[in-house]
């Protein structure tokens, strides 16, 4: 997952839209030679691409100037089209010549990013305004609501849109730091009208949609509620699949975990177990705080070892709970 790139001095994003093919290009290609190819998983939007792009560029060339480009090959079956508006100025590009704005259509399925990239300066936090033009399946009324749960005109429940990520679903900002009370409130608000029990008098089709929507909202809520699964989810959105990471050899971490597991195994009294559990909870909290900084800085690859460490502590806590 390495980007290849070289320098370019200006950034000017333009949109060239063709049927199912959209290209986001930077202006000056004269000094850009090498193509960049990167595959992303579904549910991806430009903010994420931009963020991971920024991270890799930071690693690749800290002194590079500015410019970013990417071509999006999109394909999806549904007729629903989500529009994402990204203003490059807002994305924090430190370039005076980066005033242009670009937009592209989001789509599901696999998104392949092929682009030519020069550098980006340092910090890169993205803000995305997303606008959706979706058509109600029942009355064909157009809606700009995102996520689109219920048609405002005919009140028909809409099908689940897999392209909407969990943050969008609960309408919270995509960032690691989350107010858990806000999450809970949003979750409960949504369940008030999405819960399948409420649609028992509606059509079969709507019942299915309500069940899907409601299940997805539950999944989103519990994923974002937990600091570990939230981090794992954000990594996945950034194209890093932590579930498939193979064997690790970090001796310091593994030795620590081995010793902790032995301590748990040998512990006979309840007080001792409570003490180890507390220690592990503190360690998880430390990881969580470190993750806040890492995600804030946009260097998501640095989150990987922290997430791994956190997963081990979680496992130990589970083991203690099982034993208690």
């Amino acid at each position: 997952m390495r980007w290849l790139g070289s320098k370019s001095s200006t950034l000017r994003c333009a949109l060239q839209s063709h049927l199912r093919f959209y290209e986001l290009v930077s202006g000056d290609f004269s000094s850009v030679n090498e193509p960049i190819v990167r595959s992303f998983t579904p549910n991806l939007d430009f903010g994420v691409v931009a963020q991971s792009l920024a991270h890799d560029l930071q690693e690749f060339d800290r002194s590079a100037a500015t410019a970013t480009a990417g071509s999006f090959f999109l394909g999806r079956e549904s007729d629903r089209t989500a529009k994402c508006v990204v203003t490059s100025g807002r994305m924090g590009l430190e370039s005076s010549s980066s005033g242009g704005s670009c937009s592209h259509d989001l789509a599901g399925g696999r998104v392949r990013v092929l682009g030519r990239v020069a550098g980006l300066k340092r910090r890169f936090s993205s803000t995305i305004a997303k606008r959706v033009e979706a058509k109600c399946w029942s009355c064909e009324e157009l809606s700009t609501a995102n996520p689109f749960f219920i048609c405002s005109s005919c009140k028909a429940i809409q099908p689940l849109d897999q392209d909407v990520d969990f943050f969008q679903l609960l309408s919270v900002d995509r960032r690691y730091v989350q107010d858990l009370k806000v999450l809970e409130r949003k979750y409960k608000q949504l369940q008030k009208f999405l819960h399948p029990d409420l649609s028992s008098r509606k059509s079969k089709r709507e019942q299915v949609y309500a069940a899907d929507q409601s299940a997805q909202v539950i999944k989103a809520y519990y994923t974002l509620l937990d600091p570990l699964s939230r981090a794992q989810y954000m990594l996945r959105l950034g194209g890093v699949n932590i579930d498939e990471e193979g064997t690790i050899h970090d001796p310091a971490l593994l030795m620590e975990i081995m010793e902790l597991r032995e301590e748990v195994e040998e512990a006979t009294d309840a007080d001792k177990l409570v003490k180890i559990k507390e220690q592990n909870k503190n360690k998880m909290l430390q990881c969580e705080n470190a993750l806040k900084e890492v995600f804030q800085s946009g260097r998501i690859m640095h989150a990987v070892p922290l997430v791994q460490r956190m997963a081990y502590y979680r496992k130990i806590i589970e083991e203690i709970t099982r034993k208690q």
Binding site: E245, L254, V307, A311, Y312, K315
Partner: peptide, 13 residues
Amino acid sequence: GLVGAPACGDVMK
């Protein structure tokens, strides 16, 4: 040999 699979929390010596 000390190895681990963080995805499932396994550690093996």
